[in-house]
Design a protein around this nucleic acid. Structure first.
Lengths: 207, 207
DNA sequence: GTCTATAGAAAGATAGAC
DNA sequence: GTCTATCTTTCTATAGAC
């Protein structure tokens, strides 16, 4: 065997196609879509990689493991809140603004709130649930507690989170027609007084 | 090899230990616990079988497949509702009764509502989600629609379901401390007016 | 009726060529 | 930096002994 490797010159190794940062970004975006749709256990690294245009091995190379990839995706989606956004919090009637945003982002097919959705779909994995608990507790729960007026801020902030989670479960995850096909205006009308009860003052004398 | 099978007489084949109905019941109970804890994808047939004291093969023998076993477990848990129980529906102040039940069954560690919990944990499996959607739509949603007074029964019934689902997500699945460690009395006090808004009449003029 | 043993597919992770 | 190929484990489902 005189020439075992006659393919190419040794001087100019061809840099395949894409650079590192673009590949990493593509994998992250693909993983975000896949986890939101099928959850941590419901999707494989091969599938994520294929949708990103690379092979499964690249995922391990860039993120170490599936779990680390998941953690990064969650961090990415939780970074800028869409319901508790600065604009909504600064609105004159922020209960109304929160309600409107809540209905919009939990619409079937809507993806802006996929951070929450990823957690809901992935809660069967203990490790995934723990990652999500950290983000919600230290992020959204804390924001809400400082926002809610009146007594029992902690509990009322938690109930607000429960309401958002429940809407997402019924409308996006299980897709029960009663809410999945409901008109946004109707939902807003029904939800607004509930949100008011939770975030505005004057709820200490009920019951 | 003169006597290849000298173990036992051929006249009295020993019926191992348990009868069919007891084994089936044990498998069903084990599967219910396992699915509630880890979801459809999060648990294997081996684990379910081991907790029931049998081998994985028996599960296939009694239920055909994992999916059929799951469907039977869901049917079993959905059969008698614990929040929408006849007693609660017949209570003088049924909004208060529903609220109390809602807080009780979504307490961390509580398992009476594991039908819902199983679905939440299993929603990443498309087939499991579909099984759950059928039960909720035709069962609880229908019951609620006939119970709710006033306009928009469909949407308000759905919102009630969303509230229960959200409580279960936050308190049992993700276990956010704000609600998981909250006093039941506080939660009842905060939730009662919300439940009233949803199930009692007179909510057509808000907004 | 219950078991051991295994087939066949798919998962995550890794080695090594180029 | 990217690939093909493979290791190891784990899953569901099934065949066959007793």
């Amino acid at each position: 065997m005189p020439s075992p490797r006659p393919r190419r010159r040794n001087a100019a190794p061809p840099p395949r196609r894409r650079d590192a940062v673009a590949t990493r970004k593509a994998i992250l975006a693909s993983a975000r879509r896949a986890f939101a749709r099928a959850g941590y256990d419901g999707v494989g690294l091969r599938e994520i990689a294929a949708a990103a245009g690379v092979t499964a091995m690249m995922v391990g190379r860039y993120f170490g493991s599936k779990e680390e990839l998941f953690a990064e995706v969650v961090a990415d989606t939780m970074r800028d809140p869409v319901i508790l956004s600065p604009e909504n919090l600064a609105a004159p009637d922020f209960a109304a603004a929160l309600t409107k945003a809540m209905v919009a982002v939990t619409a079937p097919g809507a993806t802006p709130l996929d951070g929450f959705l990823i957690l809901l779909h992935s809660a069967s994995s203990p490790r995934a649930a723990e990652i999500g608990r950290e983000w919600i507790s230290r992020g959204h729960q804390a924001t809400l507690e400082s926002l809610v007026e009146g007594p029992w801020q902690v509990e009322r902030a938690g109930l607000f989170l429960a309401l958002v989670a429940g809407l997402q479960v019924i409308r996006q995850m299980v897709e029960i027609p009663s809410l999945a096909e409901a008109k946004p205006a109707v939902l807003e009308k029904l939800l607004k007084p509930i949100v008011r009860l939770l975030v505005e003052q004057g709820n200490g004398s009920v019951g």
